[in-house]
Design a protein around this nucleic acid. Structure first.
Length: 268
DNA sequence: ACACTAACCTGCAAGC
DNA sequence: TGCTTGCAGGTTAGTG
C-alpha cells in the first residue's frame, strides 16, 4: 500500500479537482472492503458539498456538510480522476461523480481498504500516534516510549501508536540511512541514535512526497501517474543485492511477518 | 502491558 | 503447460 507519501500524493492530486464541488452520485459496485462500506452511504452523501480533503496517518478524510467519509487505500488501493466514459476496470469498486464533471474511481484488488461515513468522529483515528512530519514526533518520543521494552526497532517505528504513516518501505529506508539494524532492541538504543533516526524518518518521507511516492506495482496518483521514489530505494526489495555504500550483499530477514532488508556492515 | 500471530483478499512470480 | 507455494504497500483481533 500506499504509505504516507503515497496517500499525501493522492490527496494533492485529487483535491484541486473535486474540493468545492457537490457529490452528484456515489456508486458502490463492491462494498466488501476491510470493513463493509457504510450501509446507505450513497443516499447519505448525495447532494452534499465536498468542503475539503485532509489526511490523518494513511487515512484520507473527505469533509462534507453533514459529516465525513474516511477512506483508506489498504495494501493495493488507489484513487484516480478519470473520464467517466472510460470503462470501469476490474476491481474498480467505488465511483464518485461530482457536479463539476469530475469522476473519481477507487480501485483496490485486495480490498483491504475502507470507505466509511460518520457524522462525527471516526474511531479508527482515536488511538493514533503523532504525525511524523510535525514537531510532535521527535527523538524524545522514541526514547521515552522505548525504555524497558524489547521489541525490535523496525516494528516499533511501524507501530501506529509510536508514529503514524511509516510502513515497510520507509521504515527500512530510514533505518538504513540511520545505520541502525532493524532487529535492534528498542530499549538499548540511545537518545542520540533516536535523534538520527527521527531525522531520517522525516527526511525520507519528505523526499518520497517530492518524488510523488513509490510505485512498486500499481500505485498511481490522482491523475494516473506513477511515483518515482522507487529509484531512490537503498534496501527495500533489494535483498541479496550489493549495499550501495559498501557493496556487501544485503541480508533479508523477517520481523513481525514483514520482510526486512539491511546491510550487516553499515547497520549495527 | 507487551510481544507476537493469524487473518482479511487477489495477483503474480518462482519452483517443481 | 499447469499446479502449488509464498509473498506483497496495512491494520486489527486474538493469544499467551
Amino acid at each position: 500500500m500506499p504509505e504516507l507519501p503515497e496517500v499525501e500524493t493522492t490527496l494533492r492530486g485529487i483535491e484541486p479537482h473535486i474540493a468545492g464541488a457537490e457529490i452528484e452520485q456515489l456508486i458502490v459496485y463492491n462494498g466488501s472492503l476491510r470493513w463493509p462500506v457504510t450501509e446507505g452511504i450513497s443516499e447519505i452523501v448525495k447532494g452534499q458539498r465536498l468542503l475539503s480533503l485532509t489526511r490523518r496517518a494513511k487515512y484520507l478524510l473527505l469533509h462534507l456538510e453533514q459529516g465525513s467519509m474516511m477512506v483508506h487505500l489498504g495494501m493495493s488501493g488507489s484513487l484516480r480522476l478519470v473520464d467517466k466514459n472510460i470503462e470501469r476496470r476490474k476491481h474498480d469498486h467505488i465511483e464518485m461523480h461530482m457536479s463539476n464533471g469530475a469522476c473519481l474511481r477507487y480501485h483496490d484488488p485486495r480490498r483491504f481498504g475502507a470507505w466509511l461515513w460518520s457524522e462525527g468522529e471516526h474511531h479508527q483515528l482515536d488511538h493514533l500516534g503523532p504525525e511524523p512530519l510535525t514537531d510532535d514526533f521527535s527523538d524524545k518520543r522514541l526514547f521515552d516510549l522505548s525504555r524497558r521494552r524489547k521489541v525490535a526497532v523496525k516494528p516499533f517505528i511501524m507501530d501506529n501508536k509510536t508514529v503514524v504513516g511509516v510502513g515497510n518501505i520507509y521504515a527500512s529506508e530510514a533505518l538504513f540511512r540511520s545505520g541502525i539494524r532493524p532487529d535492534s532492541e528498542v530499549g538499548k538504543i540511545s537518545q542520540q541514535r533516536y535523534k538520527v533516526l527521527a531525522g531520517h524518518i522525516k527526511d525520507v518521507l519528505h523526499a518520497a512526497i517530492e518524488q510523488g511516492g513509490t510505485t512498486l506495482r500499481d500505485f498511481v496518483n490522482g491523475n494516473g501517474e506513477p511515483g518515482y521514489f522507487q529509484q531512490t530505494l537503498a534496501v527495500y526489495g533489494r535483498g541479496g543485492e550489493p549495499c550501495i555504500n559498501c557493496e556487501k550483499p544485503l541480508r533479508e530477514i523477517r520481523l513481525g511477518q514483514r520482510s526486512s532488508v539491511f546491510c550487516t556492515r553499515c547497520q549495527r
